[in-house]
Write a protein that binds this DNA or RNA. Structure first.
Length: 458
RNA sequence: GUGGUUGUAGCUCAGUUGGUUAGAGUGCCUGAUUGUGGUUCAGGAGGUCGCCGGUUCGAACCCGGUCUUCCACCCCA
């Protein structure tokens, strides 16, 4: 070994048991996606840069992985930017492709491109990796998987209701209890900004408000003031900082705060609609919670905003998010198509399930029976049986080498293979097989039909 | 992108103010046991001390850089 090989920062290999667990999660999510009427699509792992750039805010642009142009890219580089060592400016002249940053923007691009083939409202799901040039932390990777479900072409609030139900259905089927579905509405946030007369500082305002739980009321106010929002203005929405109680209790305080804001009142109306519907329909294990400080991933959301918090005992930030975006396809030339969707963070859900020990034990697909190899004549005899067992749906293997039985048994043991078949000269004479149960140690001599039935019933 | 932190055998980790040949547990291989695994016993293999450079008679240990891990900020699944 000349040099230890390695993989890039923030990426991971997945070994068999990890893949099994990841597949388990994906399968549960996929199952619900399909039950709710979503159809799968896939898009390329990289897009044209201009499809992605500028869609996630300034910070987002920085986190997009750019792909260097092929060939003699320096010859075509922006000479001025090059001389000035201006990395930001030179990028567009040396890179015209980039790895996708999420699944929503590529989907919007897809919808616009395929608009004539699609039947609206169009419901799609998509489970693929995305890439972000972020600095890794626990639960933060540079390559990770998102599982998205979106609907385009319907501005009905019943879609929001359906997505809350979908979240609940998925987490219930994963036996993950205590998940909190936090909901907010961009119109509420716009309402706040309007009431304090700072509509043009909406983003700064909401980014600061989002940190309430983390840095506290004083911290938020301080940050807002640093962004140029006056103390008097902030005072006008003082009640926001002490918002407590049930969904309806919070709504009634919001009614008070946002009385003068038309857009704010619209936001309240939408939240109430969703809440009333959910109250009527009920949720299995999750709970719906109004959180007016919720503002992440705000850039293209226009209505509902969702974020999923893991159960409180786990230290993990959001494991999912989503919202409504009224004009995402507008950027690509198709206006008046409203979209709404949600995303599941596969990698974080994995970490949560692992920590809470919620993965079923029998999750790793495994061979059920290993035939011991006694030599060529015996192997041929065994392989005939192996073939029949496989046809009967039983995962079966013959040990490939004629080595010491101890080694072969050990191999079965290490791989947790529950049964071993021994078939040597004696068995061949009687046209039988000795089946050994590796757990109990019991063994018996059976005909092929008996062997098959026995394994089938296990 | 800013600040901090981590790295020693396949894995989990010791390693004294810098001092011969860097250790343990576990795992691995061989044998006790040529048609019977897990337990036990005996033996064995396995290390560029993340990497590069510096200080020193001498570096796993001190210094600088770099990569990686995790944490905080930023942002986010």
């Amino acid at each position: 070994m000349a040099q230890k090989p390695s993989i890039p920062k923030g990426t991971r290999d997945f070994s068999p048991s990890e893949v099994a667990k990841r597949n388990y999660i994906v399968q549960k999510i996929q199952e619900q996606f399909q039950k709710f009427g979503f159809q799968p699509i896939e898009t390329p792992s990289f897009e044209n840069s201009d499809t992605l750039m500028g869609k996630y805010g300034e910070e987002g642009d920085r986190l997009i992985f750019k792909i260097l142009n092929s060939g003699d890219f320096l010859r075509k580089a922006d000479q001025k930017a090059y001389d000035a060592k201006d990395s930001l400016k030179i990028t567009s002249s040396i890179s015209e492709k980039a790895l996708r940053y999420d699944l929503t923007v590529p989907f919007a691009r897809y919808v616009v491109q395929h608009r004539n083939e699609l039947e609206f409202p169009f419901k799609r799901y998509q489970i693929q990796p995305v890439w972000r040039a972020d600095r890794p932390q626990k639960g933060r990777f540079r390559e990770f998987f998102q599982c998205d479900a979106d609907v385009v072409g319907s501005d009905s609030l019943w879609q929001e209701v359906e997505f809350v139900q979908l979240y609940d259905a998925v987490f219930s089927s994963l036996n993950l209890e205590g998940v909190s579905i936090k909901i907010n509405n961009r119109k509420i946030l716009s309402g706040f900004a309007e009431v304090i007369g700072e509509s043009d500082k909406l983003i700064d305002f909401t980014v600061a408000l989002d940190k309430l739980a983390k840095i506290g009321e004083d911290g938020v106010k301080k940050e807002m003031q640093e962004k140029g929002i006056s103390a008097e203005a902030i005072g006008k929405i003082q009640k926001v900082f002490g918002l407590k109680g049930t969904f309806s209790e919070k709504i009634s305080v919001l009614n008070d705060i946002l009385e003068t804001s038309e857009i704010g009142r619209k936001g309240i109306e939408e939240l109430e609609f969703v809440n009333n519907a959910i109250k009527n329909l009920g949720l299995e294990t999750a709970q719906l919670e109004l959180d007016v400080t919720l503002a992440r991933g705000l850039n293209y959301y226009t209505g509902a905003i969702f974020e999923i918090s893991a159960p409180e005992e786990v230290q993990m930030s959001s494991i999912g998010g989503g919202g409504r975006y009224d004009d995402l396809t507008g950027i690509f030339g198709l206006s008046d198509v409203s979209g709404v969707g949600i995303s599941f963070g596969l990698d974080r859900i994995y970490l949560v399930l692992e920590e809470l020990e919620l993965f079923p034990e029998t999750i790793t697909p495994n061979v059920k029976v290993l035939f011991i190899n006694f030599g060529n004549k015996e192997s041929l005899y065994c392989l005939k049986a192996v073939k029949q067992l496989r046809r009967a749906g039983i995962a079966t293997e013959l040990y490939p080498e004629e080595v010491k039985m101890k080694k072969q048994m050990n191999h079965a043991n290490k791989r947790d293979i529950p049964f071993v078949v021994l078939a040597g000269g004696e068995e061949m004479e009687q046209q039988k097989f000795t089946l050994k149960n590796m757990k109990s140690g019991e063994q018996e001599m059976l005909s092929l039909t008996e062997l098959q039935n026995r394994l089938k019933n296990e």
